[in-house]
Write a protein that binds this DNA or RNA. Structure first.
Lengths: 178, 178
DNA sequence: AGACCATACCTCGACAACGAGGTACCCTGG
DNA sequence: CCAGGGTACCTCGTTGTCGAGGTATGGTCT
């Protein structure tokens, strides 16, 4: 997820580590802050994989800033990841949101629509949170307000997203046949 | 999160590993499946921490089943965790949902209300996903449908949850003053 | 009898993420 | 003049998670 977000932000423009940290903090930070001890090793991994290069800028600020530039390989890696996301990128809320934040980089409405279709399929799949043996237990059956709320919120969330997905798919696919 | 879920399920009734696995699969599995290589070491950790005991049942099924029973310490650990959740339990959707699933075990409406208040405070905190410098960028400003959708869905989700939180808090606190 | 699947449990190596700590510089205010 | 805070980067040990693999038994289908 971190890898995806780093590539996504750098696709727009080169940034140095600290700026990247702030962008990441805005995107996912209020939910799950990323620490330095996570970010910098991740950058190193991406560098040694050849997805980005660090350009040292001697001037300006306190410590020597390493501006991070995506390589062609890095740009390709991002696009490949966006085009064919892993199963977890589709199902996990946090990862899906990260993917959504950068899906615009994929400059192909058909491919974008395909990704949205995968999310649509995931959300319309029947799934329950609780089972009594093999029988799914619905929200109405719970006497405690918390599990009832859990199911209610999950339903409201997925309905809001489904509405958006269907509208956006119609838009994208309308543009295709023009 | 896994620890919380294991303790939560075992609080209701003793289970053996395989049953636990199925309960976990229902609760979080469609979003983020847990593998055996995660579950069994987690059980061992809880055992060596004295939070549960394994009782071997020689009869019935294929392999000897180890039925897992919470100890008094385990029950206490769950209640303590529910009573004073970590910051990530409040902010991270997945972890919050897990917490919500077991909050009924906390047999004290005031403590339950306190936890909901923390989530309420978190959700009403102003936070934006994207910034242009220091200025937060709103949904309306994006031309790409994906970031716009991201913000729209996030808003719808949090509104649904806020409505439920407020209603449930009123209920819980109404019960307190009776 | 043999193949196959579900049940049930476990280990191992690899890796991602974390927090705590450290280094070093600049600027501002007392 | 120097303390404190922001900028900027990095390391290290610990923990959690994963996937791939292994072991074993009971039941079903052919």
């Amino acid at each position: 997820m971190l890898k995806l977000a780093i590539l996504g932000f750098l696709y727009d423009r080169p940034l140095h580590g600290y700026q990247l940290r702030r962008h990441l903090a805005a995107l996912t930070g209020h939910v799950r802050p990323i620490s330095d001890g996570t970010l910098y090793p991740a950058i190193k991994r991406l560098e040694s994989d050849g997805l980005l290069v660090r350009v040292t800028e001697p001037g300006s600020a306190a410590a020597p800033r390493h501006t991070l530039h995506l390589t062609e390989e890095g740009r390709g890696a991002l696009l490949a990841r966006l085009r064919e996301p892993e199963a977890l990128d589709i199902s996990d809320e946090n990862r899906w949101f990260t993917l959504l934040a950068f899906l615009r980089h994929l400059d192909d409405p058909a491919a974008q629509a395909a990704v949205l279709h995968r999310r649509l399929a995931f959300l319309t799949e029947p799934a329950s949170f609780f089972y009594d043996g093999d029988r799914p237990v619905g929200a109405e059956e719970f006497t405690d307000p918390f599990r009832r709320g859990l199911l209610l919120i999950a339903r409201a969330t997925s309905e809001a997203e489904l509405a958006w997905l269907r509208a956006t798919l119609a838009e994208l696919e309308g543009a295709l046949t023009d």
